[in-house]
Amino acid sequence: MSTETVTASIASASRDKKREKNFVKTWKRLLKNKMAIVGLVIIALQLIMTVAAPILVDYDPNKQNLALSELPPGTDGHWMGTDNYGRDIWSRLVYGARISLFVGLGAVSLGLIGGVVLGLLAGYYRRLDGIIMRFVDLLFAFPGILLAMLIIAILGTSLVNVVIAISIWSIPTCARIVRGSVLSVKKQEYIMAMKSLGASDGRILFKHVLPNCTAPIIVFATMRMATAILSTASLSFLGLGAQPPTPEWGAMIAAGQDFMWSSPHMIIIPGIAIMLVVFAFNVVGDALRDALDPGMNLDK
């Protein structure tokens, strides 16, 4: 390695350190918010459940044991009880966490890709603005769940189609948020400076406009995780998403509603799980918005 490459790599390391510093700053501000910590802990628990599901549970989530059906929580070996087929609810809950996280991530990332591209184009090119935004308005005209149901009706019921439906539903909101940020960023003088340097539109959009629009996109993505998880559960509850015996939380509630009086834990436990996760992503999204707000950069 020549001395030059050494200095260059040292330089890039120090550059990374600076980036890291910004990240740490945001992180520290985030941790000042008590609610955010609660939310982060819940999300962390869901992550652990997702990664370590086989270690955490003793039973196959789909294995029926009719002899042990409808056991109440607190039973030996089944601390959260069992459902009407004698399946361990804890196992189903843990595997359900995996599904809800994957569906949420999938739907949000697909929605982000579509929304960011449309938003960038609409915000940057005035000619495309009208066309793209009318298309977005068209998507907005449908209530979210109805739009998702329509898409599933066309594509057929399955978890993958739920991901697609929810991502399409996320596109218009995301596109509007991105467009708004692009409109304010593109008026900045540094964009004009890049134009006068002869930079291509692609370079300006992805290297200069997009990096300066990240804060609202991150907040949107976090909040959207909550909506996506809730919508997946709703669609599965309605029988449009995960099909039995998949241990999806919404599907678990749907299966449990007939046993609401005899074994209320069949719907209460997955219900609480959904509530906690949605709550967690919402408070973390809120806290992120505060932490990323440039106005807050002034204190400390």
């Binding site: 550059r15 003088e189 540094y190 400076a193 290297k207 200069h208 990096p211 300066n212």
Partner: peptide, 9 residues
């Protein structure tokens, strides 16, 4: 203050 991209070194 405005003519340099704040996210770029």
């Amino acid at each position: 203050y405005a003519s340099l991209n704040p996210k770029q070194t």
